[in-house]
């Protein structure tokens, strides 16, 4: 299976990953904040959270950054999600519900949390990766729905 490796885009993955890493370091160094997409986004719909300006700017930046990346590089715009409506709704719901319950997602736990060697984040990342494997295997090879 590793023979497939060359057809994929390791350089882009490493470069894009480094960019994500640099962005997290800048936010920590200047604002003292963790660059976790779900924590930032979900605070925006929580009336108990004050100081929303920087959070809104982060999300606006993320949307624009995703747009500009394809204008400024050769990386093609990916295809639309192929999951059916039920999976889109259920997948979105569980992604939001789970990351709120577990205090973080791929960026918050997977990058920032591991970078500060938080045991919670390391265990969270291993758990959601494992759950991801199990669910793709069940949904694709078991049920054939994705």
């Amino acid at each position: 299976m590793l023979a497939h490796l060359s057809q994929f885009n390791i350089t882009e993955a490493l470069f894009g990953g480094a960019l994500i890493g640099v962005s997290a370091v800048i936010l920590l160094l200047f604002a003292g904040r963790i660059a976790g997409a779900c924590g930032i986004a979900f605070s925006l719909i929580n009336p108990a959270v004050s100081n929303q300006g920087w959070r809104l700017m982060f999300i606006v930046g993320t949307v624009l950054g995703g747009f500009l990346a394809h204008q400024m590089t050769e990386v093609p715009v990916p295809n639309a999600p192929t999951s059916n409506l039920l999976l889109l709704i259920l997948g979105g719901f569980l992604t939001g519900f789970g990351s709120k319950l577990g205090n973080g997602c791929t960026s918050g736990h997977g990058i920032c949390g591991i970078a500060r060697l938080s045991p919670r984040s390391i265990i969270s990342t291993l758990t959601f990766m494992l759950a991801g494997f199990v669910f793709v295997i069940v949904l694709r090879h078991g049920l054939g729905v994705i």
Binding site: A37, C38, A41, T62, P81, S83, L87, L88, L90, G91, G92, F93, L94, T95, G96, F97, G98, S99, K100, L101, G102, N103, C105, T106, S107, H109, R120, I123, S124, T125, T127, F128, M129, L130, A131, G132, F133, V134, F135, V136, L139, I146
Partner: peptide, 21 residues
């Protein structure tokens, strides 16, 4: 909460292939 949250998050991520960022 951390473990169940991560499990549900992973399940949702798998269903569509999108996470929040």
């Amino acid at each position: 909460k951390l473990l169940i949250g991560a499990m549900l998050f992973g399940a949702g991520w798998a269903m569509v292939g999108i996470c929040p960022g």
